[in-house]
C-alpha cells in the first residue's frame, strides 16, 4: 500500500517534471468546448457546434449498414452509433431523424416495414446509450431513395442503411 502510494507520488512528480524539460509538450487535442466558442480548423470555414455539419464531421459516420433482409447492428454499426450517441449526449437539445432504407431486391411494402425496423434498430441503440428517445424520430423510405444506382451487390449493400440526420 505504501509502495503504491509512493509510486503514485513518484509518477505525479515525474509528470510534473515533464513540464520542466526543454522540449515543448506535443499538442494534445482536447475535448470540444461545451459552449459556443468557435473551432478554427485552419481552413477558414466555421462550423457551429451542435449543427448538422458539426455532427457529420464529428462522428465516425452518419450511416450504418445492414445485411440483406436484416436489421441487426453489427460491430461496425455499433461503433458508429456509439460516436453518434456521444455527440448527441454532448448536445442534448439537438433532435434527429433516422431514415431507414432498403435495397431494390425487396417488394415495395415489405421494404417500407423493413426500413422502419432498421431506423428503429438504430434509434433503440442510441436510446440505450442514453439519448432520450423523444429526440429521435424515424422515417422509412423503403426502397424509394437508393444511394447507389447499379443493380449489383456493391450498390445494394450501400443502400441497406439507416441515416441519422440532424434536424435542428
Amino acid at each position: 500500500m505504501a509502495r503504491t502510494k509512493s509510486g503514485f507520488l513518484l509518477a505525479a512528480a515525474l509528470i510534473a517534471l515533464a513540464g520542466c524539460t526543454k522540449t515543448p509538450p506535443p499538442d494534445v487535442p482536447g475535448p470540444g468546448p461545451d459552449n459556443g466558442t468557435v473551432v478554427d480548423n485552419g481552413g477558414g470555414d466555421t462550423i457551429r457546434p451542435g449543427s448538422a455539419e458539426d455532427f457529420k464531421r464529428s462522428v465516425m459516420s452518419d450511416t450504418v449498414h445492414f445485411a440483406y433482409d436484416q436489421y441487426d447492428l453489427d460491430a461496425q454499426a455499433r461503433a458508429i452509433l456509439d460516436t453518434q450517441a456521444q455527440w448527441l449526449l454532448r448536445y442534448p437539445s439537438v433532435r434527429v431523424t433516422i431514415e431507414g432504407h432498403c435495397d431494390e431486391r425487396g417488394t415495395r411494402e415489405y421494404n417500407l416495414a423493413l426500413g422502419d425496423r432498421r431506423a428503429n434498430a438504430a434509434k433503440n441503440y442510441l436510446a440505450a446509450r442514453g439519448v432520450a428517445p423523444g429526440r429521435i424520430t424515424t422515417i422509412s423510405y423503403g426502397k424509394e431513395r437508393p444511394l447507389a444506382l447499379s443493380s449489383d451487390e456493391a450498390s445494394w449493400a450501400q443502400n441497406r442503411r439507416a441515416v441519422t440526420i440532424v434536424i435542428s
Binding site: A11, L14, I15, L17, A18, C20, T21, P25, P26, V28, P29, G30, P31, D82, Q86
Partner: peptide
C-alpha cells in the same frame, strides 16, 4: 530523469489520447 519524464509524458499523452477518442 528525462527518460522517465519522457516515458511518463508518453504515457500521459497516450492516456489522454485514448480517453479522448473513445471513452467507452
Amino acid at each position: 530523469g528525462l527518460a522517465v519524464a519522457g516515458i511518463g509524458h508518453a504515457a500521459l499523452f497516450a492516456l489522454l489520447a485514448i480517453g479522448f477518442l473513445s471513452e467507452s
